[in-house]
Design a protein around this nucleic acid. Structure first.
Lengths: 155, 155
DNA sequence: TTTAGATAGTTAGATAACTAACTAAATTAG
DNA sequence: CTAATTTAGTTAGTTATCTAACTATCTAAA
């Protein structure tokens, strides 16, 4: 019974997170479209916040994404002229991805397009509540990240 | 500056939720496979918890999902013999979906297969923390749900 | 009572993620 | 120094979601 209700809470939690993810992704996508999708914006934003000149594998890990998915995202960004991709000279298996001026401008437009959603959210939730929520979610994320290679109880 | 950092917090929040969703969905999927995927389990679980005999549109709304997506999930569940779908006699546009005994058993296996993850999670997070997190997320979800048809500031 | 609009569900096509399997290059071991 | 292993990235194919557009049915209004 305790087992059951605990499992129910865990399931409700992840279910709630799934729905929030779906709604927020759709909302972001609508704000950003047609220039970028949320994944593409995420890569540009990452470069502005943490610096560019990263490899596709580094980016894939940073976004908890597979390498093929990142390859596809980077190809689209390159086509749009928002990133430049060149081979590494040190290690010729690697590629180095950098932000172009057009990419920096696109990221800036993305930030602006998302601002109205953030403003509306802050009319309904005070910023302190959201700030407090963040570390709780990070703890949950870290647990799942550590768990990702764990073996199932049933197989 | 305030605008910028608020937007950053909002973005981090949804980013964190996106990663948690991805990790938890992958983890659930691995536990449930190959019998069910998380969406299919969700429908069976919904029937056990809240009763069956619902229409596809009702289920689509409950899961914040489009009707075509729900059609696809229900077709798979029907193929597997886990739900029965019959036409409504009152309203011949409608279909009524009910849980079969095999579906109830599959849901029970699903609950058991997910239990180890719940147990491990509860070794790292006490249940009270998770219970407190739930309503915070529900509030966020309700906001997004209300916002879903809002007009963008930029267009 | 016919017709216009709304609602239920499906079909078709697009998209973005995934896994598996591949090539090329670097590293490590015998 | 060669051979095996590991790492980086891509290609091919699958899956689950979405939107748009369709048929069938019901409801309401002229």
């Amino acid at each position: 019974m305790t087992e059951q209700s605990s499992a129910d809470i865990v399931f409700s939690l992840f279910n709630e997170i799934g729905i929030i993810n779906q709604l927020s992704t759709a909302r972001f996508a609508r704000s950003l479209a047609p220039d970028l999708n949320p994944s593409e914006f995420g890569v540009l934003n990452h470069f502005v916040r943490l610096g560019d000149g990263k490899t596709p594998t580094h980016l894939a890990k940073a976004f908890q994404m597979t390498k093929p998915s990142m390859t596809a995202i980077l190809s689209k960004l390159e086509q749009k002229g928002y990133v430049a991709i060149r081979g590494s000279e040190k290690d010729r298996r690697r590629k180095i991805v950098t932000l172009t001026p057009a990419g920096r401008a696109a990221r800036q437009r993305g930030v602006k397009s998302v601002a109205p959603l953030a403003r509306t959210l802050l009319q309904h939730h005070d910023i302190e509540t959201l700030k407090r929520l963040l570390p709780q979610l990070q703890t949950l994320r870290e647990f799942l990240d550590a768990e990702r290679n764990a073996v199932d109880g049933l197989g």
